[in-house]
């Protein structure tokens, strides 16, 4: 059978398929608008195969960076200093409440992001640090992605190094998780891509010279040092980067959608130990 005939036969099948295969669908039951039903993708290569490809593409680089050390280690030290520095009208430092070496925060970052009834939404480590400054220290909030903000976030996260991520999506967190998933699977921008298309369905494939990364390891190493940034950046900076790369409108840091997205993505990494600062190309 020629390829042309095969294609002609496939066409009517495609028409049927159109009704069943879209990643995001809105059920019209009862005529009421309701949350879209998202059929999650199955990656089209196995985790083992992905890891083999990662090793082939980045193996040399990861060895080299392990030997040379991570420049972001100095940023962790800056964060530690800031942690015990008294700031604000209450005359307190973070250490006043959380222990001189942050001992009361060990393992805590592994549970973030999480639902917080006080804001009726998702709290991230970055947001929480600023709320502590404002509410408990009487100190100004730190500008997201500024040096001191990243340093403090990095230090607080480093107190959970080695602790497996265990975020909860139960109870009141659930709708925010679903909203994060919806954004992750939404097609938009001129390319009509979604995050999930590249990072789930085609994870492990090469898009030109870039390996499409597997999202199970997207949140364990942020804030991370990144060669391309020649510096440290947050997970949400990476969201903005991917948005821009594929010509989608990036959102503001710590916007509700990005916090929901962070919850969705962090949950995908449940069980993976936190390892900050990461080091990436």
């Amino acid at each position: 059978m020629s390829k042309f005939i095969v294609r002609i036969m496939i066409l009517p099948a495609c028409a049927l398929f159109v009704f069943s295969a879209c990643a995001v669908r809105t059920p019209s039951a009862g005529g009421k608008a309701s949350a879209p039903v998202i059929t999650e993708y199955t990656p089209n290569i196995s985790t083992q195969e992905y890891e083999k490809r990662y090793q082939a593409v980045y193996g040399k680089f990861t060895e080299q960076m392990a030997a040379e050390g991570n420049p972001a280690d100095f940023v962790v030290d800056d964060g530690k200093d800031l942690f015990s520095k008294v700031q604000g009208s209450a005359g307190k430092s973070c250490a006043s409440c959380h222990g001189a070496n942050g001992e009361k925060l060990k393992g805590v970052a592994a549970m973030y992001p999480k639902y917080d009834p006080a804001i009726k939404g998702i709290d991230t480590v970055a947001l929480q640090i600023n709320r502590c400054r404002k509410d408990h220290m009487g100190a100004p909030e730190l500008k997201y992605e500024s040096d001191p903000q990243l340093a403090l976030e990095l230090y607080v996260k480093s107190l959970s190094n080695g602790v497996p991520i265990h975020v909860s999506i139960d109870g009141p967190a659930k709708p925010f998780y679903e909203a994060g998933k919806e954004y992750y699977y939404k097609r938009f921008g001129q390319f009509n891509f979604s995050c999930a298309l590249c990072h789930v369905k085609y994870a492990g494939h090469m898009i030109r010279a870039n390996l499409l990364s597997n999202n199970r390891h997207h949140t364990d190493h942020f804030p991370t040092y990144r060669l391309d940034w020649s510096g440290v950046g947050s997970l949400q900076k990476r969201f903005r980067g991917c948005n821009k790369n594929v010509r989608q409108e990036p959102l503001p840091f710590q916007s509700e959608t990005y916090r929901n997205l962070e919850l969705y993505l962090t949950y995908q990494g449940n069980g993976v130990p936190i390892q900050v600062p990461g080091f990436r190309m």
Partner: peptide, 11 residues
């Protein structure tokens, strides 16, 4: 999208 409604190929 006419052939694969969930294609990654940009329209």
């Amino acid at each position: 999208r006419v052939f694969d409604p969930d294609t990654i190929m940009p329209p």
